[in-house]
């Protein structure tokens, strides 16, 4: 691969654009393709079609063609995790999720919590959760986790999350807290199918005690939802 091709590929990734790298294995010829592209110079039409189909699914695979074998390497933007509540558990969860390949955003209007020295290298929003989540344009590759326990912060976040195709919505709190939360959602007009999208108590049941252990259980549940497509 030429360094110029790699630079353009990395620029796409940094701008969170989906891109497929198509390499002809016989001679190393490489080209980039983006969703919506009709053609790429030097790439046969049927390889372009196959690359765009693979890119839409985020798949990487070889493609045999008369002229030789092409390898299609799809790069799609990292999944996102939006954490509402810059609390102690959030500090562990943000760091672990980042290591697991998520783009993490922490949302908390309480500026004493949402400080960059508590979340080094993590994107922070101090807007109110309803507004913050609307601006983040939650998509089907976004997970939302609320950790504040405070209805005036968690509830607007859940409203925004339920109005989106987010693949995972989880809310920290005991069974009792969760029941009360579901009752409030029902009184705001959310149907049962909506309310059932919220995982509560949040996380896999592994007997977690410390903030870091709870973060492990939440991250494991989020990854399970991402990889199984159970959303």
């Amino acid at each position: 691969m030429k360094a110029g091709t790699l630079d353009r590929l990395l620029a796409d990734r940094r701008a969170k654009r989906s891109v497929a790298l198509v390499t002809r294995l016989e001679d190393g010829f490489a080209a980039l393709l983006h969703p919506g592209d009709r053609a790429a110079e030097g790439v046969p039409r049927e390889v372009v079609v196959e690359a765009l189909r693979a890119l839409a699914k985020g798949q990487s695979l070889p493609f045999e063609q008369d002229e030789g074998t092409y390898f299609i390497r799809s790069f799609i933007p990292d999944p996102r995790m939006v954490i509402v509540g810059a609390v102690h558990i959030a500090q562990s969860l943000a760091e672990m999720a980042r290591l697991a390949g998520f783009h993490v955003v922490v949302v908390d209007p309480r500026q004493a919590f949402a400080r960059s020295d508590r979340f080094v290298g993590i994107e922070i929003s101090t807007d109110w959760p309803g507004q913050a989540l609307e601006e983040l344009e939650l998509d089907r590759r976004t997970a939302v986790v609320t950790l504040t326990h405070d209805p005036k912060l968690d509830d607007p976040a859940l409203d925004a999350a339920l109005a989106s195709p987010a693949f995972y919505i989880g809310s920290l709190g005991s069974k009792k807290t969760h029941r009360a939360r579901l009752e409030r959602l029902a009184s705001r007009g959310f149907a049962e199918a909506d309310r059932e999208r919220i995982r509560g108590p949040v996380g896999l049941s592994i007997g977690s005690v410390t903030p870091a252990e709870i973060a492990v259980s939440i991250l494991a549940e989020v990854i399970g939802a991402l990889r199984s497509g159970s959303s």
């Binding site: 691969m1 360094a3 790699l6 630079d7 590929l9 990395l10 990734r13 699914k57 985020g58 798949q59 990487s60 695979l61 390497r73 799809s74 790069f75 799609i76 990292d78 999944p79 390949g101 590759r141 693949f167 991402l226 990889r227 199984s228 497509g229 959303s231």
Partner: peptide
Amino acid sequence: MDKQTTPEAGDVLEQAADWHKEGEGVAI
């Protein structure tokens, strides 16, 4: 949802680009 995706691969390629800019020979 996307079993074939390896999110960390992009960061690996960032490292390749950094080495190349430092004048180091690089293989992928």
